[in-house]
Amino acid sequence: MFCLPVSHHLTLRVGLLAALCAPLLAQAAVVPDRTRVIFEEGSQAVSVTLSNKNPQLPFVVQSWIEDEQGKKITTPFMVLPPLQRIEPNERSVVRIVKLPETALPADRESVFYLNVREIPPKSEAVNSMQIALQSKIKLFYRPASVKRERGQDLARGLALKIDGKQLLISNPTPFHITVVGLLAGEQKAKMPVDTVMIAPYGNTRLPLSQTGFQQLRVSNMNDFGGQTDTLFHCTATVCQADTQ
C-alpha cells in the first residue's frame, strides 16, 4: 500500500481526489543532479541537469522559480526552458538565468526555490491514477561580498545559548544555515528536532530533550547537500564552536 507523503511535494491528477492511498509504488522518474543551487553574483546562468530514470516512458517536465513565500515569480530569475520533454533514459538541462537590472541585497544571501514537476504520459487504463511528482530545490543567490571559502564550515559562526529546555541559535552571518539535527555529549546522543533554515542575521529556538551536556554537535547542510557536524563546547548556558 502506498500513501502519499506531504514532504514529496506531490501533485495529483486523479478521478477521485479523496483516494490518497493506492496499491502502487511511486518513485520520481525525473531526478535533478543536486539538492540545492548556488547562484554567485557575476554568473550569467547556472545549469541543472535533469535525468529521466524511466527506461520506457518519456516525461514532460515543467520548471519554474518561487520566492521565499512560495509565490511563482518571473524576476529576478527565470528558468529556460520552462517546459520540455525528456525521453526514456535521457538527460536534459534547465538554465537558471538572472535578469539584468534586478537588484538583490548585497550584504547577505537571498533564497528562492527551483521547482521541477514531471508530468507522465496519459494513461489509457480505465479509472487509473496519474501522479505528477515535483521536486523543490533551494536556490541561493550569493553576492560577491559574502563569498564562501571552499570547505568553510558556516555553522562555526553560530551563537548558541541554552535557555531552560530550549536552545537559542543566533545566526550573525550573511548566509542561510540549515540545521538538521543536534547531537549531545561525547556519546553523540541524537535529540529529536525539526529541520530549520536560519536566515542571515536571524535566530530560532529548538527544543532540548536533555540538558547538562558539555558538548553539542550541530548537524547542518553544506553547499553540496552533504551534512556537517559542527562541534560546540558548552559551559553553563553558553556553547562556543570548537577552535581546532
Results as ranks from 00 to 15, higher is better:
Ser123Glu: 09
Ile131Gly: 00
Pro82Val: 02
Asn222Ala: 10
Ile169Lys: 00
Ile131Thr: 10
Gln69Cys: 00
His233Tyr: 12
Gln215Pro: 01
Asn171Gln: 11
Pro172Ile: 01
Thr178Ala: 10
Glu41Asn: 06
Ile177Gly: 01
Leu139Cys: 05
Pro120Cys: 08
Leu50Tyr: 04
Thr243Met: 08
Gly185Pro: 07
Gln134Ala: 11
Thr211Met: 12
Ser209Arg: 12
Ser209Val: 02
Lys190Trp: 05
Arg156Met: 04
Leu183Val: 02
Asn220Glu: 00
Asp67Pro: 06
Val111Trp: 00
Ile137Val: 09
Thr243Cys: 01
Leu25Ala: 13
Ser123Ala: 09
Pro100Cys: 02
Ala106Gln: 14
Ile86Lys: 02
Gly202Val: 09
Gln187Phe: 07
Ala18His: 11
Arg150Glu: 15
Lys138Phe: 10
Gln166Ser: 15
Gly70Glu: 07
Ala159Val: 15
Val31His: 06
Gly225Ser: 11
Val180His: 00
Asp67Cys: 06
Glu124Arg: 10
Ile65Cys: 06
Ala45Phe: 12
Lys190Gln: 14
Tyr113Pro: 00
Tyr201Asp: 14
Met221Cys: 04
Glu87His: 02
Leu80Phe: 07
Ala28Tyr: 11
Thr35Asp: 11
Val61Thr: 07
Leu20Phe: 14
Ala132Arg: 11
Cys3Asp: 07
Ser43Gln: 15
Ser123Arg: 09
Leu183Gln: 13
Pro207Arg: 06
Asn89Cys: 00
Gln240Ala: 13
Leu83Glu: 11
His176Leu: 05
Gly151Tyr: 07
Pro100Ser: 01
Phe59Tyr: 15
Arg34Ala: 09
Ile119Ser: 04
Arg91Met: 11
Cys234Ser: 06
Ala29Val: 07
Ser123Phe: 01
Gly181Ala: 05
Ser43Gly: 02
Ala29Cys: 12
Arg36Val: 04
Tyr141Arg: 05
Ile198Arg: 00
Arg156His: 04
Leu104Gln: 06
Val94Thr: 06
Gly70Asn: 08
Thr195Ile: 09
Ile177Ser: 01
Lys161Phe: 04
Arg36Ser: 15
Pro172Phe: 03
Val14Ile: 13
Arg148Ala: 08
Gln44Leu: 10
His176Ala: 02
Leu104Val: 04
Ala144Tyr: 09
Val116Leu: 03
Ala18Tyr: 10
Ala18Phe: 11
Glu186Ile: 12
Arg108Gly: 00
Lys138Met: 08
Ser145Pro: 03
Gly151Lys: 07
Gly42Lys: 08
Thr235Gly: 13
Gly212Glu: 09
Arg117Thr: 10
Asn52Gly: 05
Glu68Cys: 00
Val193Tyr: 03
Thr230His: 01
Thr211Leu: 13
Phe59Ala: 01
Ser145Leu: 14
Ala103Lys: 11
Val126Gln: 13
Phe112Ile: 02
Lys190Pro: 02
Gln210Ile: 14
Thr102Arg: 12
Ala144Trp: 08
Ala241Pro: 03
Ile96Trp: 01
Ala125Val: 10
Gln62Pro: 00
Glu149Tyr: 05
Lys161Cys: 02
Ile65Arg: 08
Arg142Ala: 05
Ala189Glu: 14
Glu41Phe: 05
Ile198Gly: 02
Val116Asp: 02
Gln130His: 06
Ala241Val: 12
Leu24Asp: 11
Gly157Ser: 14
